[in-house]
Amino acid sequence: MQRVNMIMAESPGLITICLLGYLLSAECTVFLDHENANKILNRPKRYNSGKLEEFVQGNLERECMEEKCSFEEAREVFENTERTTEFWKQYVDGDQCESNPCLNGGSCKDDINSYECWCPFGFEGKNCELDVTCNIKNGRCEQFCKNSADNKVVCSCTEGYRLAENQKSCEPAVPFPCGRVSVSQTSKLTRAETVFPDVDYVNSTEAETILDNITQSTQSFNDFTRVVGGEDAKPGQFPWQVVLNGKVDAFCGGSIVNEKWIVTAAHCVETGVKITVVAGEHNIEETEHTEQKRNVIRIIPHHNYNAAINKYNHDIALLELDEPLVLNSYVTPICIADKEYTNIFLKFGSGYVSGWGRVFHKGRSALVLQYLRVPLVDRATCLRSTKFTIYNNMFCAGFHEGGRDSCQGDSGGPHVTEVEGTSFLTGIISWGEECAMKGKYGIYTKVSRYVNWIKEKTKLT
């Protein structure tokens, strides 16, 4: 034993070699072989497995989906700052455009905790909710729209109204504003409101030439003092309507412009014939205590009207009353817009006519005020429907199939267009061939041609 100890002390290297040989010859039971080890760690190889990531292109799944990435790591994937920024906006807080917040056709661009709407022409605001041009839906104005110097929408209202708090709607500024039905039992019968379409306001006024200088022999019209197929109006439903009495009662109609003036057809009036105007009328054979009678003290036909040349060209006249009318729910003026808007309103496509005229061709006159909704007829169809001249200051309205029309005794009465609950004068009943005849239409004086003249002559002093 002493000898062994001496050998170990003198030859430590020998001992180490012996131990190493023993270990190498022993069977290893701690580690699995290569094949079995792979069965336990069965993990798919990654895209760049075996390579240094710093030297390969980034992978979106590896960089940002398996674990949260930084902007720089995302930049490695896209290799483009702009594309990385677009991805980053949604990656950080989701897609803010998912709810489609942009209105009126706006395009949404996502941002971090926010979004941006790219608005089409005519709109602005956070969600493109603000109209900035009158060309689109009248700028959301209830009545009139004008573009300011910086191309912003400025709404306005006709006389007797003021802008509401929203700067879009119009509200009454006087007790009985024009064009409004205020009798409670008839307010439910107000005709369907007309909503502004998209309009090209630059070209809204037709490029028409008034044929002022045409000389033409007097034409022989049949029954051209021209509501057939209409309905009984309720008291106060058309408070701007008046009836004219002269040699015979209810020979023509008219509309209240203001307390002192009536507008009617020029062919209705004769110099030297006494005319009485009755406002607030409903049943011409009954006294309903809503009527107001006034005498006409002055007749002003349009300066281009000449019955000797043509009885229905420039067929418009103004009547001055001896005493002002007292405005109330049964006696209310009709609204008159400017030339541009009167023309736009007419193009809405349908209007209402009213009167006490004959209820059928050569038949009896109506006792109760009649009204009828009539569609506008395109000019080409209008011209083809008659052998008589249709001037540019006239328009056609009615039904091709016949059966409904204005008729004798309705002449001078109103053709009105309702705009968001307020009625505007767009025409004056003038003439036609018979009444409600198939293929024939009622012919009306186009008020847009005469609004400046009306307003100039009827100013209240």
Score class of each variant (00 low, 15 high):
Glu193Trp: 10
Ser114Val: 08
Lys438Gly: 14
Ser350Met: 09
Tyr330Leu: 05
Trp453Glu: 00
Phe424Met: 01
His303Val: 06
Val296Asp: 00
Phe87Gln: 03
Asp198Gly: 13
Glu129Thr: 04
Gly409Lys: 11
Val243Arg: 11
Gly357Lys: 15
Asp378Pro: 12
Ser350Lys: 15
Asn5Thr: 13
Ala307Cys: 05
Glu53Gln: 00
Cys69Lys: 00
His415Gln: 01
Asp212Ala: 06
Ser329His: 09
Lys457His: 15
Val377Ala: 06
Asn452Thr: 13
Asp95Gly: 12
Cys141Ile: 00
Asn295Ser: 11
Lys68His: 09
Leu244Gly: 01
Phe224Trp: 11
Ile390Glu: 05
Ser220Tyr: 07
Cys97Asn: 03
Val183Asp: 08
Ser114Tyr: 11
Thr290Asp: 05
Val30His: 14
Ser220His: 08
Lys339His: 09
Ile136Val: 10
Val278Thr: 13
Val228Ile: 14
Lys293Ala: 07
Asn42Gly: 04
Arg364Ser: 15
Gly253Ile: 14
Gly253Cys: 11
Lys152Glu: 10
Lys168Val: 08
Leu14Trp: 14
Phe176Asp: 03
Thr264Cys: 07
Cys117Arg: 02
Lys387Phe: 05
Ser220Met: 08
Ala173Val: 14
Leu327Tyr: 07
Cys155Asn: 00
Glu193Thr: 10
Pro177Ala: 09
Ser365Pro: 12
Val273Ser: 09
Val153Ser: 12
Val263Asn: 02
Glu54Ala: 01
Glu61Ile: 04
Gly357Arg: 15
Ile300Tyr: 06
Thr417Phe: 02
Lys45Ser: 02
Ile334Gly: 00
Glu124Phe: 10
Val242Arg: 00
Met65Tyr: 11
Ser430Asn: 10
Thr271Arg: 13
Pro375Phe: 11
Lys455Val: 06
Arg75Trp: 04
Arg46Ala: 03
His282Glu: 04
Lys459Pro: 05
Thr194Arg: 10
Glu67Tyr: 00
Lys68Pro: 05
Glu288Ala: 07
Thr287Phe: 09
Lys234Pro: 06
Trp88Ser: 03
Tyr341Leu: 06
Asp93His: 12
Lys438Pro: 13
Tyr441His: 05
Trp118Cys: 15
Cys157Ile: 00
Ala149Trp: 07
Cys157Lys: 00
Glu86Gly: 05
Pro44Arg: 10
Thr445Met: 11
Gln2Cys: 14
Ser187Met: 12
Thr422Asp: 01
Arg379Lys: 15
Glu208Tyr: 15
Ile429Asp: 08
Tyr91Ser: 05
Thr215Asn: 10
Val451Pro: 02
Thr133Asp: 15
Thr194Ala: 13
Ile256Trp: 01
Pro239Cys: 01
Gly160Ser: 08
Thr276Asn: 09
Val181His: 10
Ala250Pro: 08
Ile443His: 05
Lys68Cys: 04
Ile344Asn: 10
Pro12Asn: 12
Phe121Tyr: 12
Arg43Tyr: 01
Pro177Glu: 01
Phe71Gly: 02
Arg140Met: 09
Tyr441Leu: 10
Leu369Glu: 06
Lys438Phe: 10
Ser49Gln: 10
Thr194Ser: 13
Glu270Asn: 13
Asp249Trp: 05
Ser411Arg: 15
Thr426Gln: 00
Ala317Tyr: 00
Ala164Leu: 08
Lys438Ser: 15
Asn113Met: 10
Phe395Gly: 02
Ile214Met: 08
Gly421His: 07
Gly398Asp: 04
Lys39Val: 07
Val296Trp: 01
Phe251Ala: 09
Ser354Trp: 04
Asn245Tyr: 12
Arg62Tyr: 00
Ile112Arg: 14
Cys102Gln: 02
Leu376Ser: 04
Ile300Met: 08
Tyr352Ser: 09
Gly122Pro: 12
Met394Cys: 04
Gly421Thr: 06
Val243Ser: 12
Cys407Tyr: 05
Val153Gln: 07
Pro375Asp: 12
Gly230Ser: 10
Gln237Val: 07
Asp93Gly: 13
Glu323Met: 11
Val278Ala: 06
Tyr161Arg: 05
Glu73Ser: 00
Glu116Cys: 07
Pro333Phe: 00
Ile336Trp: 00
Asn203Ile: 08
Glu433Ile: 05
Tyr161Phe: 11
Thr386Phe: 10
Ser187Phe: 12
Val326Pro: 02
Lys260Glu: 04
Cys155Pro: 01
Ser107Asn: 13
Arg191Ser: 14
Asp95Gln: 12
Ile15Phe: 08
Glu401Gly: 10
Gly106Asn: 03
Cys396Arg: 02
Phe345Ala: 04
Lys126Gly: 08
Leu24His: 05
Val199Trp: 12
Asp200Trp: 11
Ala337Gln: 00
Pro301Asn: 07
Val199Thr: 15
Met8Asn: 13
Asn313Asp: 08
Lys274Val: 07
Cys396Ala: 01
Thr342Cys: 04
Asp150Tyr: 08
Tyr371Phe: 12
Gly413Phe: 05
Ile7Cys: 09
Asp232Val: 06
Val153Trp: 06
Asp212Glu: 15
Val243Lys: 10
Gly254Met: 00
Gln57Asp: 01
Thr290Lys: 06
Thr16Asn: 06
Glu171Gln: 11
Glu67His: 01
Asp410Leu: 09
Ala337Glu: 02
Gly349Gln: 05
Asn452Leu: 05
Leu19Asp: 02
Met6Asn: 13
Lys438His: 15
Asn452Gln: 11
Cys155Ile: 01
